[in-house]
Amino acid sequence: MDITKYPQFELYLLTLNLLMLKIHLIPEGCGDRCINSTIINRAYFSSFLFCSLWLEDIKHFKPIPVMELDPEERISEHKQVRNALYNFGEKRMTEELSKLAKLRKKADYDPFLDITSKEVSDAVHHMQKIFNHLKFE
Rank of each mutant, 00 (worst) to 15 (best):
M1E: 09
I3N: 00
K5M: 02
K5F: 01
P7M: 00
Q8F: 09
Q8T: 15
F9R: 01
E10N: 09
Y12D: 05
L14N: 14
T15M: 05
N17I: 02
K22S: 09
I26E: 05
P27E: 07
E28K: 12
E28N: 09
E28C: 02
G29I: 10
G31F: 05
S37G: 04
S37Y: 00
S37H: 00
F45Y: 14
S46T: 03
S47T: 12
F50C: 08
L53W: 01
L53M: 13
W54T: 07
K59Y: 08
H60C: 01
F61A: 12
F61V: 07
F61G: 08
F61N: 03
F61K: 14
P63I: 03
I64D: 00
I64L: 08
P65I: 09
E68H: 15
D70Y: 12
P71Y: 04
E73Y: 15
K79M: 14
Q80W: 10
Q80Y: 08
V81S: 01
V81E: 03
R82T: 12
N83D: 15
A84T: 04
A84C: 05
Y86M: 10
F88A: 00
G89H: 06
R92C: 00
M93R: 13
E95Q: 10
E95I: 10
L97N: 08
K99N: 14
L100R: 02
A101E: 13
K102L: 11
K102F: 04
K102E: 10
D108Q: 14
Y109L: 09
P111H: 13
P111G: 08
F112K: 09
F112G: 07
F112Q: 11
L113R: 09
S117A: 15
K118M: 10
K118C: 04
M127P: 10
Q128S: 15
Q128T: 15
N132P: 01
H133C: 08
L134R: 09
L134G: 04
L134F: 07
E137A: 08
